[in-house]
């Protein structure tokens, strides 16, 4: 008897348990898990932990590091641009100096050419003058010799004419007056 009562009680408890189980299951599976308030405390706790850790990792390590990298890069770019600007200025100065040197060298070369030309001209003038003088001397000498020859020839002509005149006079049977012939020849040669 007692046994049966216990059994019955057990059965009732079991049944209630099943019912509750079924009810609980229905409640859990029917609604949105988002609205299951029994999980809110848990979620919020772990969310707070996660956010705190993320914040810690980001502010302690990641953000300063990335900020540093970006600042470094900006600095490097700025300094590189400045260096490039400086090098450009240097290159421009070098080009200017090169051009100046080129102009100077050209001027120097022109000067040297002019000097050489002047020197050569001087030598040339000297040589020309010397040659002219020699030529003049030779010409004068030649003229003298020609004059001499010409004078010699005229004298010979006078002698030949006198002799010829005397010979002609003799052939005609006369006796030539030497003085008269000479005068006649001389006058004829002058005329």
């Amino acid at each position: 008897m007692a046994n049966t009562t216990t059994e019955a009680a057990g059965a009732v408890t079991e049944a209630t348990g099943h019912a509750a189980e079924a009810a609980g299951h229905a409640a859990q599976s029917a609604g949105m898990p988002q609205l299951d308030f029994s999980t809110f405390g848990n979620q919020i706790f772990w969310l707070a932990v996660a956010l705190a850790l993320i914040y810690f990792v980001l502010t302690r390590v990641a953000l300063p590091r990335i900020g540093g990298i970006l600042a470094d890069r900006q600095g490097k770019i700025t300094s590189d641009i400045a260096a490039a600007e400086e090098l450009k200025l240097k290159a421009e100065a070098a080009e200017k100096a090169y051009n100046q040197a080129l102009i100077d060298a050209r001027a120097e070369a022109n000067k040297i050419v002019a000097e050489a030309r002047a020197e050569i001209q001087k030598d040339l003038d000297k040589a020309t003058a010397k040659a002219d003088a020699e030529i003049a001397a030779k010409a004068a000498e030649s003229a003298k010799r020609i004059e001499e020859i010409r004078a010699g020839a005229a004298e010979n002509v006078a002698v030949v004419a006198k002799d010829t005149a005397e010979a002609i006079v003799a052939a005609l049977g006369g006796k030539a007056d030497v003085g008269a012939v000479a005068d006649a020849v001389a006058s004829r040669l002058k005329g």
């Binding site: 079924a22 009810a23 609980g24 029994s38």
Partner: peptide, 10 residues
């Protein structure tokens, strides 16, 4: 199942 039914204080 059934061990968490806040509506019934479980």
């Amino acid at each position: 199942p059934g061990s968490c039914v806040p509506a019934e204080d479980i």
